[in-house]
């Protein structure tokens, strides 16, 4: 039973959520992805507002389930996950930590210019686009002309 005196603060809960990985890109957390829009106590119920990255992203329902499971494991039992579509998600909401981890994982982070600034493998700036789409809704396919490796680019939207 969670009471106002024993219940964790929303900051603590955000820390817990920072340990919940994105199911498709497990090196970044749901906090890094910028999809957790609000964490609020409503009476004895914790409400977490989640925004989808892309309208049809199949990971969305898995993410909601992962969040709920993680919070239950921490002893919370009254949890409400709400979908919030406005304002629409933007890749600008990726955290700096998330951007660094993406590159370390081999995915070039989004750039305002609309394409990767360098190859995540060899850091060459000589890169070309293969396709505007990729293995998940949030990625496009690029290739490095220096090391010849293809790589994922996190779309800027």
């Amino acid at each position: 039973m969670v009471t106002t005196t024993t219940r964790p603060t929303t900051d603590e809960i955000r820390e817990w959520l920072d340990a919940v990985p994105d199911p498709e890109i497990p090196v970044i957390s749901v906090i890094d992805l910028g999809i957790i829009r609000d964490v609020t106590w409503r009476g004895d119920t914790l409400e977490v507002a989640v925004t989808p990255t892309y309208s049809g992203c199949p990971a969305t329902s898995v993410i909601a389930m992962d969040i709920e499971t993680a919070l239950r494991d921490r002893g919370l039992d009254k949890i409400r996950i709400v979908t919030q579509i406005a304002p629409p998600w933007t890749s600008d909401w990726l955290s700096d930590k998330g951007r660094m981890r993406l590159e370390g994982y081999g995915i070039a982070p989004p750039q305002a210019a609309g394409g990767p600034d360098r190859c995540p493998q060899c850091h060459s700036q000589d890169v070309e686009r293969i396709s505007q789409f990729g293995s998940t809704p949030c990625k496009a396919q690029w290739r490095c002309r220096e090391c010849l490796e293809p790589f994922d680019y996190f779309k800027c939207i």
Binding site: P52, Y54, S55, G56, C57, P58, F133, G134, P137
Partner: peptide, 10 residues
């Protein structure tokens, strides 16, 4: 397929 996914999501 990705475009289809966006459209079905919408």
């Amino acid at each position: 397929s990705n475009t289809a996914l966006d459209l079905i999501g919408q």
